[in-house]
Write a protein that binds this DNA or RNA. Structure first.
Length: 264
DNA sequence: TAGGCCATCTGGTCCT
DNA sequence: AGGACCAGATGGCCTA
C-alpha cells in the first residue's frame, strides 16, 4: 500500500474510531451515573448499559415496580469494584447493603445529618465509600433517574425503598450529570395491584425524559445550555436526546409500551 | 514500577 | 479498486 493510501486509510480509521467514541460518550450520558469528572471506561460503560437494559426489561416483563436493591444489584452485576462504588456513590448507597458478599468489610462514610443538600436529589458525600472508590466529585443520580415520580407523590411507589438506604442530606459535589431520565409508568395498574393503584393515574404513561438545562436537576454542562449535542446526532434524529420531552421517537416508544401493557 | 486505559497505526478480510 | 470493519501491536498517560 502506498504512503498516500496508507495515510488516507489511517485518517479514515481515526475518524471511524472517533465516531465510535462519540457514540460511546452518548451511551455514557444515557446510562445511570454519568459523571464528567469520573468517566466510565469503555468496557464498563458497555457492561453498565447491558445491565441497565436488562434491568429495565425485567421491570417491563414483571410489570412491577422493583425494589431499589434488586435494581442496583442488577445494574452492578459484573462491574468492577470502582464502578460499583461509583454507582453506589451516585445513589448514596452503601455498597455493603447490596453487595454483601463482595464487600464484606467496607468502611462506610455517610454524610453528617443535617448537612446542606441540593433540593430534590441525592448526592454523594466524600470521602469514598471504599478504598477503591474514585476521587470525588462523583456523578449524581436522582432517584427519579431510575424510576419515576407518580403524580402528586415525590418519588412514587419506590420511595420506601430509599428509606435507610439513600441519604438525601449532604453537600452535593456536582449538579446531576446523568440525564434526568425517568420512566413514567404506573406499574400498579395491573389487576393484582389494582387496589394500590387507586390514587395513581390509571392510564399508563410511559415516557423517557431528558430534562433541559437549568435548575439543580438540569444538565447545562452536557447539553450546552439548551442546545442539542452535535456529537449525538444519531440520537437526535430519533429524538432520544430531545429537550422538549415528547419527541416523535418518544411518542412511538410510549405507544409501544402502552400497547405492551394494555395487552398484558 | 506494574497495570489499566486509551489513541493510533497497520495489515488482513469482507463487501460494494 | 476502494472503503468499512476488525484485531494485534505499540507507546503514552495516569494511578495505586
Amino acid at each position: 500500500m502506498t504512503d498516500v493510501r496508507r495515510m488516507k486509510a489511517n485518517a479514515r480509521e481515526r475518524n471511524r474510531m472517533h465516531g465510535l467514541n462519540d457514540a460511546l460518550e452518548c451511551l455514557r450520558k444515557i446510562v445511570p451515573c454519568y459523571s464528567k469528572t469520573q468517566k466510565l471506561s469503555k468496557i464498563e460503560t458497555l457492561r453498565l448499559a447491558k445491565n441497565y437494559i436488562w434491568a429495565l426489561s425485567e421491570v417491563l416483563r414483571s410489570g412491577k415496580a422493583p425494589d431499589l436493591m434488586s435494581f442496583v444489584q442488577a445494574l452492578c452485576k459484573g462491574l468492577s469494584q470502582p464502578t460499583t462504588n461509583l454507582v453506589a456513590g451516585c445513589l448514596q448507597l452503601n455498597p455493603r447493603t447490596f453487595l454483601p458478599e463482595q464487600t464484606p468489610d467496607l468502611p462506610v462514610h455517610l454524610p453528617p445529618a443535617g448537612a446542606a443538600t441540593y433540593p430534590g436529589h441525592y448526592s454523594y458525600q466524600s470521602p469514598g465509600l471504599t478504598a477503591g472508590l474514585p476521587s470525588p466529585p462523583y456523578g449524581t443520580m436522582e432517584p427519579s433517574h431510575i424510576f419515576h415520580q407518580v403524580k402528586g407523590q415525590p418519588y412514587g411507589p419506590l420511595e420506601p425503598f430509599f428509606d435507610g438506604v439513600l441519604v438525601s442530606d449532604g453537600p452535593a459535589f456536582d449538579p446531576p450529570l446523568s440525564p434526568p431520565l425517568s420512566i413514567n409508568g404506573n406499574f400498579s395498574s395491573f389487576k393484582h395491584e389494582a387496589a394500590a393503584a387507586a390514587d395513581y393515574d390509571k392510564s399508563f404513561s410511559f415516557s423517557v425524559h431528558y430534562g433541559g438545562a437549568g435548575g439543580a436537576g438540569g444538565h447545562p454542562a452536557v447539553y450546552g445550555g439548551g442546545g442539542p449535542n452535535p456529537r449525538c446526532s444519531e440520537l437526535q434524529v430519533d429524538g432520544l436526546m430531545g429537550f422538549d420531552g415528547h419527541t416523535h421517537h418518544e411518542r412511538m416508544m410510549n405507544a409501544q409500551l402502552n400497547a405492551i401493557f394494555h395487552d398484558s
